[in-house]
Design a protein around this nucleic acid. Sequence first.
RNA 1: GGGCUAGUGGUGGAAUUGGCAUACACGCAAGACUUAAAAUCUUGUGCCUCACGGCUUGUGGGUUCGAGUCCCACCUGGCCCACCA
Length: 854
Amino acid sequence: MYKHKQIEAKWLSYWETIKLHSKYNSNKPKFYILDMFPYPSGTGLHVGHILGYTGTDICSRFYKMNGYNVLHPMGWDAFGLPAENYAIKTKTHPAITTQKAIQNFKRQINNLGFSYDWNCEVDTSSSQYYKWTQWLFLLFFKNGLAYQKMASVNWCLSCQTVLAREQVIDGKCERCDSNVVQKELKQWFLKITKYAERLLADLDKLDWPDKIKEMQINWIGKSIGDLIKFKISCSELVNNAQKDLPLDISVFTTRADTLFGATYLVIAPEHPILGYYKNSITNFDEVQKYIQSIRYKNELERTGLAQEKTGVELKGLKVVHPITKTELSIWVADYVLMSYGTGAIMAVPAHDQRDFEFAKKFNLPIKIVICPNYPNPICPILDAAYTGSGHLVDSGDFIGLDSKSGQAEISKHLLQIGAGVRSVQYKLRDWLISRQRYWGCPIPLTFCSNCEVQIKNSEIDLKTLSVGEIENPGWVPVLDSNLPVTLPEDVDFLPTGESPLARSKSFHNVSCPRCKSTVNVRAESDTMDTFVDSSWYFLRYIDPLNTQEFAAQDKIKQWLPVDLYVGGAEHAVMHLLYSRFFIKALKDLQIVDFDEPFIKLVNQGLVLGENNQKMSKSKGNTVNPDDIIEAYGADSIRLYEMFMGPFADSKPWSTKNIIGVRRFLDRVWKIYETLDKIKPREMLSSIPLDKNITRDDKQLDILTQKTIIKVTNDIKEFKFNTCVSSLMVLVNALEKQPLLKHYESLILLLSPFAPYITEEIWSQLHPEKYKQLDYSILQEEWPSANLDIISDDKVTIIVQINGKLRDTVEININTPQSDVEKIVFNRPKVLKFLGDQKPKKIILAPNKAINLVV
RNA sequence: GGGCUAGUGGUGGAAUUGGCAUACACGCAAGACUUAAAAUCUUGUGCCUCACGGCUUGUGGGUUCGAGUCCCACCUGGCCCACCA
């Protein structure tokens, strides 16, 4: 039995005192291994964190031993709502609780023997870090990538803040699960939509799981279709042509082939046309009432499939079909979203299920224009929309075309008559980053009424202004020399819906960075979404103490992009998309020279509770890693999590099963103890321990070489579970035949998985090495397999009769078929099963199998 | 509704990618050691059958000399997206 507590305490303090991380050596290749940094919650490390961190720690140690410069940093995604909510509950400042949580995380991480380089540590809530978050925000602002606009935004009633679209799950707040409603607010956005096409196209370059790529493709949501103009017809337009009214309503469709089936138009409740034509709409009161009624529905209630269609007609207003010139009615309905396309659709009830339901409910005409069984002209009477393709019927000059060419022809025709244009739409929307909360990075802008007036009246030379200042008149960036804009300490952070920073007097004691005015000047009091912090943290790791730049150029060139990124799939469309956007923007601004941040991405699976359900406090199925480390040791929990199953799969925790890997480590230890009894040591390589055990050095040697190959390959492929089982096989053999040479290979192979026990054993096997400065097993070279030993001239093939296994024979490698047949027909088992039948056919799979068909 | 993914012993899971299904481990059973227990070690452990042998990778079909692996349909979980025009 090895004493894990003593050994782990010993090496933990040893590792702290030595330099484990060697300096960058330009003769070696670099390898940047990144974990998704944790949010330091008060409850400490989750066993799920340990799964991912063990994976990256194994890689980190493996690549170091294979001669790479390895960067393996860790930090803290420290801003965010939970810390603030906890602070409100306990009336302790979030900075204090966050620092406490970080200390606890760090203690747990160190206990687990992870080889992070703490010289790289970053904390997004420290002013040294968020100074550069602010600097990057201003860079985006000055270059037109950050802008403010009034928008209908998601507002969490409980957290009292705006949320990004990504943080609204089924109409509820991602954090607190309470209702999210729509609210009109002026907010800051980052222009991620500018990069939609590149974010989509460049996915091809990435070695990422297909699942994640697929999710990003769906999220970006590219569709190619047509923008079609429907001319508005109403009495007001005829009478007051001089008025500045829009003359048509544009709709977006991917099915221009169904244009002749459009029997009415539907616009979103927020559509601007309503304002313009207030006076022409004879039932405007009724329309207003409808819009009010849906206002406080959340997105699920509004858009859920189960919801019955609602809507109201705009009386007094019509549109004209661009080709047939028929007058069509216009409706307002909440099933049309202002945030996609143009906020208006042409309704084709015969060929769109939503339109069909709406038309049925309000008794609107349904016109069939696509026929699946053409040229049979009789189309079935519909009880649901026919959304497939077919041939065009009842479509003027386009009758008889198939859907695809019909779409192309109608599109061409619309362009000719000036009523339409090809268009690409994306579901991706600009990233709303304002938050009305305290515990986040302040937005480093000042609003100056004086400057606003001057810009609007063109009293300032526009050439002296940045794009951001021109597009957002009155908003002036804080001077770089005055960054960071620090979070005021003296703030009552209880949420009221108003930004907590707005209530700090000191915070508003500012002057305009441009005109120096102190009158009618205020600091922006919103903070940024924490996803802004995490969009660039991997750049800061390489140079965290730099006070002049967010990172030095030569270091960026040295280390980036990230070679391997490991984390959960839940970040597929938020963090992973935002970071890609940041890097593309920085590439365009010539700050970095690569355009993708993470070359290879690996997802870790969920660690479920013993009952196969997601771990949660309320279900009472959580596991505290500290208890496991106490009882079984850090090496055991690392090894166990790797052994549980495939790295990327979700799999249930089982405290009972840890005993298996612990026994394995005990055996490894025991082999060492038996070795130690045999002296002198130089004799060890060939002395069998027990004379009763039959020796078979060659077999053991082959097994060792095979294990080296297997573990080396499987680490590269993140197949850690099979690494562990093949190490177990080797240990089972070494127990019977404890030869030092092979045992040393085992210890080296095991060291990335179980660093404590292997460092201890290695130090006892090689005490002289530990007299060197900063020595650790990490400095050893990774074992390489001797292929000569395993290359064999014999091979075992299987013998099948009618596909059923009947025998196995050992033959010389590459034996020709005729000779194999001779051998096989002399085997008693084969003769027995064959009887007096003669094979009709004999198939040889060389060096694998022979199948006799009778 | 759409997409992705998985389904193998009592349990977690292996299977060099079409060639010995159930490696490795947990559990269980028997034995050794012990006054006894724990720990440890040894042996056994898919199902049916006394046996010879037969059957077995969610279900049904197909391709193939040969299928856990490939194809089609279905069933059941999990994840993601979803009135996206």
